[in-house]
């Protein structure tokens, strides 16, 4: 018998996961209710393996994860943010650590280096990488829109509104700062992320506080 966690949405802000003795990884403290038998265990580090742990430590980036194991239904929610389900079939999902709510145990999580630009955008140096087959739940402040990027059609996103992307995408930080920015007349869009390639980008209708957003 297959032991596969079932992910479903209860409303748009609560994730319900049906467990049958298997486990999922979820953001620490995000359980709001459960029925049945559940156990919660904090996982060390963040990403799998020693490498993930070391990188987390180095960067101080913290996504504290707990393992939820048991039989029954567990409900997850965080600060009334919208929950988006993403089904992965072997591809890789890159997601801001703060926006990852829950992943199936079959998925492998790790970190990827974003580049130094991450610092100015407030997104951190590393992004969480989720790979494998299964469900992942991504949070967004307000309902997320999914934008397609294809060859010859690059996409620019406000770093504060970016939450995740899948597919074969290269991302570069672009400065939209012009002459007037230095005189304090900036448009508030000094930094943007440009995506080139083929894939999908998840964008939330809200902006995190970023350094770039102020200039």
């Amino acid at each position: 018998m297959w032991l596969v966690a079932q992910f479903r949405l209860q409303g748009s802000k609560v994730l319900a996961v049906d467990l049958m003795g298997d486990a999922v990884k979820a953001r620490n403290g995000s359980m709001v209710a459960y029925s049945g038998q559940m156990s919660f265990k904090k996982l060390s580090g963040g990403g799998d393996g020693l490498r993930g742990m070391v990188t987390r430590r180095l960067t101080g980036e913290q996504m504290v994860v707990m393992e939820v194991k048991g039989q029954g239904t567990c409900y997850f929610a965080d600060r009334a943010t919208e929950v988006n389900l993403v089904r992965l079939n072997g591809e890789t999902l890159y997601v801001e650590a703060d926006n990852l709510l829950c992943t199936e145990a079959t998925l492998h999580t790790g970190t990827s280096f974003t580049g130094l630009h991450g610092m100015t955008s407030g997104n951190g140096l590393f992004t969480t990488k989720v790979e494998g087959q299964g469900w992942a739940a991504v949070m967004s402040d307000g309902p997320a829109i999914i934008l397609r990027v294809s060859q010859g059609m690059p996409l620019r996103v406000d770093p504060g509104a970016y939450i995740a992307h899948t597919g074969n995408l290269n991302r570069n930080f672009k400065s939209g700062a012009g002459f007037s920015t230095f005189f304090g007349e900036g448009g508030g869009e000094a930094v943007q992320i440009e995506f080139v390639g083929d894939g999908l980008v998840y964008v939330q209708p809200s902006e995190r506080v970023t350094i770039g957003g102020d200039v």
């Binding site: 209860q10 802000k13 029925s35 049945g36 559940m38």
Partner: peptide, 16 residues
Amino acid sequence: HGGVIELPITPQQPIH
């Protein structure tokens, strides 16, 4: 804060 979900409680199934 945020939406509300209703969860039924039955003697066979307590809710945490």
